[in-house]
Design a protein around this nucleic acid. Structure first.
Lengths: 199, 199
DNA sequence: ACAGTAAGCGGACTTTACCCCGCTTGTGCC
DNA sequence: GGCACAAGCGGGGTAAAGTCCGCTTACTGT
């Protein structure tokens, strides 16, 4: 028998500290925005050592990824088990359109944190996103399945997330103007998907 | 008359230093890759002060943007004045397809530098790219013009550049395997554009 | 040629992410 | 309960980006 009987889960104090750090960082984000969050300040405010912060989250970006995890997870649940058209039941085309507008508003409402989570080129944003996989699945379920579904899925994921991550600055996204912008982004996503499926 | 008669162009020594720095950074990139380039090392190797490096390029990412400028500029010239289907003369659909595969191979062959050029969230990658504007123009020239052309252009630009910038890691792109990957990316771009125009 | 001036230069300084490693503490086993 | 030990903790240390400001130097008009 291999000596690794149990992976020995996270220790209780560690879990407590993680929660505490998450709460603290959320508070700091609410007060001054993510760009003002420094590791030292976070550690001090939480009353913990800097080493602890890094042990829990690995990198600065990791903290923001953890902050997003919640919202991300709720959304994913809607996608996997929720009611149509987002959840299963609707046809792939409608699901994909719904997925797009849901994802756009998710990204918009967390835009600053999303940006902070992709700082430093180490991890590509794929880690923050289940989009490529989900889109690929829907492309394959289409009748007839779309060609190049793997690469097409990457491109569609980028079409969805890229404008918010690559091309739009924070000011363009925040504020009331940004809302209508995102609405139009959802409209053009719909166009894109409809034409893609009709071809 | 306003006192600003002449913008007083760049001084000769400054221009010389810029060229020298660019040559130095290119050499460093060739030797160890962009991620190993530090501002201190660059300044020292060029025999200049660090302040000078920052004055010239603003940020670390700025250096890599400057390095890319050349290739970018040559490509842009092909797009604006070169022969069809990339240059003017072909119909918008064909030009867009050609633009995509040209851009993909440009990004692939400079992938490491492109990534380095978008480090630090300050400047969105738009600065490295004329894609959104060019794509928008082609969408408007289509007959009939496509709806939502502004936002659709952003999404298509992201579909084109996003996979290479957001979702594919350096290893996946470099090496011989990456070449076929990029070829398939170009194929699925073609599909995307064809269906979009046919709808 | 020369004086005035703005642009350029250098390098010490500051800030911040991230590493390291000796000490402490929670946990599973008896 | 007590032991052994891995996991967790702390905070000083390092490296690298970016800022500042006093000195120097290339251009311009006369």
């Amino acid at each position: 028998m291999v000596p690794f009987g149990k992976p020995r889960g996270e220790r209780a104090d560690a879990a407590r500290n993680r929660e505490h750090l998450l709460a603290t960082v959320r508070a700091m984000i609410a007060e001054d925005g993510p760009e003002k969050v420094t590791m030292d300040a976070l550690a001090e405010r939480a009353g913990l050592g800097k080493g602890t912060v890094f042990r829990r989250f690995g990198t600065r970006a990791g903290i923001f990824r953890a902050v997003l995890d919640d919202a991300e997870h709720r959304f994913q649940e809607q996608v996997l088990y929720g009611p149509p058209p987002l959840g299963p039941g609707a046809d792939p085309r409608e699901r994909l359109i719904a997925y797009g507008s849901g994802r756009i508003s998710l990204l918009r409402s967390n835009h600053a944190v999303v940006r902070a989570a992709m700082d430093r080129s180490g991890t590509p944003a794929a880690a923050v996103s289940m989009s490529p996989a989900h889109i690929r699945m829907l492309l394959r379920q289409a009748d007839p399945p779309l060609p190049h579904s793997d690469h097409l899925a990457l491109q569609l994921a980028a079409a969805l997330e890229g404008p918010l991550m690559l091309y739009l600055t924070s000011e363009e996204v925040a504020g009331p103007a940004g809302e209508s912008d995102c609405g139009r982004l959802a409209d053009s996503w719909r166009t894109l998907v409809e034409r893609l499926f009709n071809g």
